[in-house]
């Protein structure tokens, strides 16, 4: 099940997150919903990401794949080059660069979609986006719910509700 609590300011939300994690709630089970990005202090609700690494991997894969395609295409369909090399790094370097960048861009967007959970089928329920409150949602066992609701109230929640897990 999920607990949902609404907060009017970032500080109270941050305090609630710290209280939750202090009682042993995994930070992966905590989510904060807002109409705009919320800047918590470092260490409160950090989200690790492999976006940069995977963008580089994607760039290398697409860049080297396209270079290999050009290399083998030029061997299979040789042009009359008048003694010039069939494969020229200088002449095909531009295409290699562009497609490497394309790989990086597509890789970034792919990782964005994965890490943000968009397009995933099994997602946690989400509250309606409101521009005047921050909504903190915690996944927890039903037997711990009572205690966590009290903690949320202590940390300044305007109101809290329970949401059953649809799955």
């Amino acid at each position: 099940m999920y607990l949902r609590a609404e907060f009017s300011d970032v500080e109270a939300t941050a305090a609630a997150v710290q209280m939750m994690s202090g009682t042993g709630v995994d930070k992966r089970d905590i989510e904060v919903f807002s109409a705009r990005p919320v800047a918590f202090e470092r260490g409160i609700l950090d989200r690790s990401s492999r976006m940069s690494l995977l963008a580089v991997v994607s760039a290398i894969v697409v860049g080297s794949g396209s270079t290999a395609l050009m290399f083998y295409t030029q061997l299979d369909y040789p042009l009359v080059t008048g003694g010039m090399p069939l494969n020229s790094g200088w002449a095909t370097g531009v295409i290699t660069f562009e497609l490497t960048m394309l790989g990086a861009i597509l890789g970034t967007v792919g990782v964005f979609l994965w890490e943000s959970g968009l397009l995933r089928k099994n997602r946690s329920p989400a509250p309606a986006i409101r521009d005047d409150v921050l909504t903190l949602q915690v996944r927890c066992d039903p037997e711990r719910a009572e205690r966590l609701v009290r903690l949320l109230a202590d940390s300044g929640a305007i109101q809290s509700t329970r949401v059953e897990d649809a799955s």
């Binding site: 904060v32 990005p37 609700l45 976006m51 959970g117």
Partner: peptide
């Protein structure tokens, strides 16, 4: 595409936009 405004999504969006 199912945007809910969760902190995970905001983190991912801001990181993606910087890159």
């Amino acid at each position: 595409i199912g945007w809910t405004g969760s902190d995970r999504q905001w983190h991912a969006l801001e990181r993606a936009m910087k890159l």
